[in-house]
Design a protein around this nucleic acid. Structure first.
Lengths: 219, 219
DNA sequence: ATGATTTCGAACTAGATGTTCGAAAGAGTA
DNA sequence: TACTCTTTCGAACATCTAGTTCGAAATCAT
């Protein structure tokens, strides 16, 4: 039959599954189109609420044909998810990069990097962390964050040769929640706290526990 | 001019603002209609994704006229927000009730109550905590949670006469994130852990810190 | 240059949203 | 019970948006 759906190859190699080809290896037109769409969506998110945006708004802003959009994304929510992935992996790169330079350095550094990263990309973070769209973007961002944390915790736990008393998946989820909950607060209410200070406070709270921090001896 | 918008009074007394009259004091028809709508939405959420639902689906399931729906809610997202408020205040009631019965009792109890409450209302929690809708429901649920926590922490801090070293708004947000992050993990992945055990683990982690829990001495 | 791939544009279907209004049903009160 | 006030109904309606289709034109990689 006459299928004519314009399925874009986007592929670097032959066997490319769902991950949607976030490489620079793709056709220049593809790169241009996708960044145009992402940028347009971001601009619009700053101006109005995400839920008040239509695909048409994005088309107009990105100066892109309707058919072209649907050749790359299924919906505006998809674009947001894409942005979330980009954000999470970029952040992971920076952390890994830092750890490579400073092996066995201060282990509170990752948290600081997280907050600095959020500050540098404030707009995107705000949209995603507030759960815009159907919540998929936030959900996946949270998942990636906690998975990365779990890997890190596991490595350290094994390195220290200590059996964790609290299951690591739980520790990781709790930590991710802590960080993201604090982040959204810090980004929304514009308190004067600089990134490294919030990070230090949260690290302290997280490592040493609330017992010493809030004046209560129990929960 | 001929405005005919059917603005429902819903009011108990004269001066009723935004809070939308969650009382039992309203007209029986209003009560019936709203719970029908809320129940219908919940049923449908269990069957398909929230984002795949239309207002028409809700109308059909609730057996309600279109105009009636819009006399009460502006959108399906509004209904979800309503549910979130209901949930948060019901939970707060239970905690307050417990604290009244057990003054100065084990202060880890609130966390346990939170998890038991989530277990009892698993379906609603899952929908809301996953950020369905435009994220407003989750956002407001998170806000209420952290505000309640802040109040509690402040009371305890003052009672103990200790100046908190970490700002309480931060502590409260971090705690709320911790709890909600753990909650969504616990509800989604059906690990065999009973409510009181997760609660105990999280309480421990939260009060004593990760230092003693994961085998790492730092962050 | 050439063959392959992407983009364009314009049209079109299908379906959901949100509003309108008079008439009917139901609630609350005496 | 009878009376008034409020809510619900139903059916219609205009409007908008999503998502798809296709041939032609543009752009890419080599």
């Amino acid at each position: 039959m006459g299928d004519h759906v314009v399925v874009i190859s986007t592929g670097v190699s032959s066997n490319e599954a769902a991950p949607a080809a976030r490489g620079a290896g793709a056709d220049r037109r593809i790169r241009r189109t996708r960044t145009a769409i992402r940028n347009a969506l971001l601009e619009l998110c700053v101006e109005r609420e995400f839920s008040a945006l239509t695909v048409e708004d994005v088309l107009e802003r990105a100066d892109i044909a309707r058919a072209t959009f649907y050749a790359h994304y299924r919906s505006k929510e998809d674009v947001l998810v894409d942005l979330a992935h980009e954000l999470a992996s970029d952040r992971a790169d920076r952390i890994a990069q830092h750890e490579a330079k400073h092996p066995e350095g201060f282990t509170g550094d990752p948290v600081r990097i997280v907050f600095e990263h959020a500050q540098a990309h404030r707009d995107v973070y705000l949209v995603i962390l507030q759960g815009a769209g159907d919540g998929r973007a936030l959900r996946e961002f949270f998942d990636q964050t906690s998975r990365q944390a779990e890997t890190l915790f596991r490595a350290r736990s094994e390195h220290a040769g200590v059996e964790p008393r609290v299951p690591l998946p739980l520790v990781a989820r709790a930590w991710a929640g802590e960080v993201i909950g604090t982040l959204v607060w810090w980004l929304s209410e514009d308190t004067g706290l600089p990134a490294d200070e919030v990070a230090a406070l949260l690290s302290d709270l997280s490592v040493r526990g609330r017992r010493w921090a809030s004046g209560s001896s129990e929960d």
